[in-house]
């Protein structure tokens, strides 16, 4: 079926997926064979403008990589746009580790094509090929630790601002 025609017409499409994956920190440095293993567990999804990818507080299942199109990440509580993501960006990777609720809603703003990597498939890959699984998980840990450092910096900055604001309030009163 798919693989039959895939074997005949294999080529440019796969290459562009590999290029897309190589550009993502979770998969950089992986060999072509390892990338092929990762590609084999990706789900290609197409979205129309205004279509919701996932809603805030829904259980997280995995991450998405944008092949083409624009995705808006919205905080539904404040209706604030947290990020505008486009070709080559990825999001939702925390859901690969556990079933935490989505922290925001993702909406397609244009016609979009995305590749989804989901926890059940990643766990299957880890079980099937622990060496590759460890590599991906280590890279994920690196990405998350970098985000944690950024978050810590932001929290520190906000605390400093809060302290300054409190000091100003106390001195003015």
């Amino acid at each position: 079926m798919d693989s039959f025609w895939g074997n005949i017409f294999r080529g440019s499409d796969d290459e562009s997926v590999y290029a897309l994956l190589r550009a993502i920190p979770l998969f950089d440095g992986l060999s072509r064979g390892e990338l092929a293993d990762v590609e084999s567990i990706l789900h290609r999804r197409e979205y129309a403008p205004d279509e919701v990818l996932f809603r805030q507080d829904n259980p997280g299942v995995g991450m998405y990589i944008i092949r083409e199109g624009s995705i808006e990440i919205v905080d539904e509580a404040t209706d604030e746009t947290l990020a505008e993501l486009s070709d080559g960006d990825f999001f939702g990777e925390m859901a690969l580790l556990n079933e935490t609720p989505r922290s925001a809603t993702a909406v397609a703003r244009t016609d979009a094509v995305l590749y989804g990597l989901f926890r059940p498939d990643l766990l299957g890959l880890v079980e099937r090929d622990p060496s590759l699984g460890v590599q991906v998980l280590l890279r994920m840990a690196r990405v998350l630790s970098e985000r944690l450092v950024q978050t810590n910096d932001t929290v520190r900055e906000l605390r400093e601002r809060l302290h300054r604001a409190q000091s100003e309030t106390e001195s003015s009163s």
Binding site: S40, E51, V52, P59, P120
Partner: peptide, 24 residues
Amino acid sequence: RDGPRIKRGLIRLVPNRYFEFSLQ
């Protein structure tokens, strides 16, 4: 041999709205 591909092909038919739910 093609089981995972066939499964992915079938999941592709699921509407986006129910996709993550169906996958789980």
